[in-house]
């Protein structure tokens, strides 16, 4: 049986197919790594984009639409995916996918461009509790993006630069817009870029950490969302949470789509 998960973001669509295989007689879910990630131009209609991505993914996986039993959509544009059987929130899909990838984790930290949140999940990857800071760029990856632009570094360079610093400079501004001026004045006072980068990532980490503390830290911590690619942030997050290890999933972009596909498989059984 094959099911699919579609993660419909504001600019990207990700598709994952999931197949249930029999391993030694016991049914086991195998992720076919038949993911497909496309960026679509802003003027393309969301449901058209979803359709196109799905077609491409089917072709890539060598299967047909009829073979796919259930399609669950997630992400900001999940309601726009017309051919989906049902939909699930990003929080639910993210946690499900994360725990599937790293079964020892119960605390899921999800930091994307637009939101930062802490999720407590049970062993099945169901959400027990979550707390987040949405719609304010200062509590999410967008903060780091803006600041890296002010420093004229790519996000990758920004993260790496931060790792080279061992200074702790507090950022006073709690708003992305005001923080930009603060960063500019730090540059003017010849503060090394590394130290500024670390200050910025520490600030995001401490805000995210406050949200994680609201759900409580239990067992292992896994980070999902765009910030997985930022080693500087991972370092800052460890510091803020006071843990030695933060698990990072493989192919982090697909975690939510995978979670949706897993939920699709479950729905199919029920």
């Amino acid at each position: 049986m094959i099911t699919a998960g579609i993660d419909m973001g504001s600019r990207t669509v990700k598709v994952v197919f999931l197949e249930e295989l029999k391993v030694d007689g016991a049914p086991q879910l195998k992720w076919g790594v038949k993911g497909k990630h496309i960026m679509f131009p802003e003027d393309l209609d969301a449901d058209l984009a979803a359709d196109k991505a799905f077609e491409d993914a089917l072709k890539g996986a060598g299967i047909t639409r009829d073979q796919v039993k259930n399609v669950v959509a997630t992400g900001a544009g999940r309601k726009q995916v017309k051919f989906a059987t049902s939909d699930v929130t990003e929080v639910g899909a993210g946690a499900r996918g994360a725990v599937f990838m790293c079964p020892t984790a119960k605390t899921v930290v999800d930091v994307g461009a637009e939101e930062g949140r802490g999720v407590k999940a049970n062993a099945e990857g169901k959400v027990v509790d979550f707390a987040g800071n949405e719609k304010c760029a200062a509590g999410a990856g967008a903060f780091a993006e803006s600041m890296s632009r002010a420093l004229q570094l790519s996000l990758k360079e920004f993260g790496e630069a931060s790792l080279r610093s061992d200074k702790t400079i507090p950022m006073n501004a709690q708003c992305t817009v005001f923080a930009e001026s603060e960063v500019v004045s730090l540059i003017h006072s010849s503060t090394p870029k590394e130290d500024i980068a670390k200050a910025v990532l520490d600030a995001v980490a401490s805000r995210v950490c406050a949200m994680v503390r609201r759900v409580g830290i239990e067992d292992e911590v896994i980070l999902i969302g765009g910030m997985v690619h930022n080693p500087g942030f991972v370092q800052s997050l460890k510091g803020a949470l006071g843990v030695d290890k933060v698990l990072l999933p493989e192919m982090p972009e697909y975690i939510s789509a995978l979670g949706a596909a897993l939920i699709a498989a479950e729905n199919n059984k029920a």
Partner: peptide
């Protein structure tokens, strides 16, 4: 969007 950062992208989208 209330947030200036997100409102800015929204404004760009409206122009487009």
């Amino acid at each position: 969007s209330t947030c200036v950062v997100f409102a800015k992208s929204e404004a760009l989208g409206l122009l487009k």
